[in-house]
Amino acid sequence: MTTTVLLVDDQPLLRMGFRMVLDSQPDLRVVGEAGDGATAVRLTAELAPDVVLMDVRMPGVDGIEATRQIVASGGASKVLILTTFDLDRYAFAGLRAGASGFLLKDVPPDDLLAGIRTVAAGDAVVAPSTTRRLLDGFAHRLPDLDDTGSGPGHRPFGAGPGRDGADRLARLTDRERDVLGEVAAGLSNAEIASRLVLAEGTVKTHVGRILGKLELRDRVQAVVFAYEIGLVRPSANPPRHPD
């Protein structure tokens, strides 16, 4: 099967570079390009790509708002955010908006290709441990979405410390809540199975049920939910990122 991709970046040279990498693969096909978020939303509706490779900072509608609109439309297209270390807060906002993961803009070509394929398959592109380190790094200073420039009051998948998040957490059994905590701690299914003395297949089943009950798309959103609801807390000494 061929995975179709929409490239979204306001820099034509970057789009050209990404297109060359993707078009070199027999299972990937670029079906369109956009230089701003509004065009990205329109082309996603028209072309229904499997994956939207989304820049964050663009003129007009930015990548976060475009991601929110694409996810809210209910289509099958998955969004993969492109970011840099100094834009961590935008990466987090993108995940809250419904993106299936993120990559750094200087990612090696092989990792970019693997990430696109992973997202197209319905999984998160970021390993749980990497997600945990990222969230630990800036959860201390994370503002409400209002401070990201994405507007007030948006809770795309209903997380957060409010009543809605607590009500959804209450849908889980005690064992599912235990598994969610381990997922948020950055453990793989095998590690969770070992810690909770379960079969790995049972853990996988629990994770699927957790995502369904909480109305989440993947493990990345599960980690975000766990942070927002207060099920886990950021480390006392977050890692430092380069300026």
Rank of each mutant, 00 (worst) to 15 (best):
T2L: 07
V5P: 05
V5H: 07
L6E: 08
Q11Y: 15
L14R: 01
L14G: 00
R19T: 13
R19G: 02
L22Y: 00
L22Q: 06
S24L: 08
Q25D: 14
P26V: 10
D27E: 15
D27P: 03
R29M: 11
E33H: 11
R42G: 06
R42D: 11
A45K: 13
E46K: 04
A48E: 15
P49M: 06
P49Q: 00
D50W: 09
D50P: 00
M54F: 04
D55P: 11
V61L: 15
G63R: 04
T67E: 05
T67G: 03
T67F: 08
Q69C: 04
I70H: 01
A72M: 11
A72Q: 14
S73P: 00
S73Y: 01
S73V: 09
G74P: 03
G75N: 08
S77G: 01
V79Q: 09
V79C: 09
L80F: 08
I81E: 02
F85L: 14
D86G: 05
L87H: 09
F92W: 06
G98K: 07
F102L: 13
V107Q: 01
P109C: 00
D111K: 15
L113N: 03
R117C: 08
D123M: 10
V126I: 15
A127K: 15
S129F: 10
R133Y: 01
L134K: 07
G137A: 15
G137R: 09
R141A: 12
L145T: 10
T148D: 08
P152L: 11
H154K: 14
R155Q: 13
P156T: 13
G158A: 14
A159E: 13
A159P: 08
G160K: 05
G162E: 11
G162H: 08
G162R: 06
R163N: 02
A166V: 13
L169M: 09
A170S: 12
R171Q: 13
L172A: 12
L172H: 10
L172S: 07
R175W: 02
E176W: 07
E176N: 03
E176H: 06
E176I: 08
D178W: 04
V179G: 02
L180K: 01
A184N: 07
A185K: 11
A185H: 14
G186R: 07
L187E: 11
N189S: 15
N189Q: 15
V197W: 11
L198S: 04
L198E: 08
A199K: 11
A199V: 11
G201Y: 04
G201R: 15
H206A: 00
I210V: 10
I210Q: 03
L211S: 05
E215Q: 09
E215R: 14
R217S: 14
D218R: 03
R219K: 10
V220I: 12
V224Y: 02
Y227V: 05
E228L: 03
I229Y: 00
L231N: 09
R233G: 03
P234R: 01
S235N: 09
A236V: 15
A236C: 04
P238A: 02
R240N: 09
R240D: 02
D243Y: 10
D243E: 10
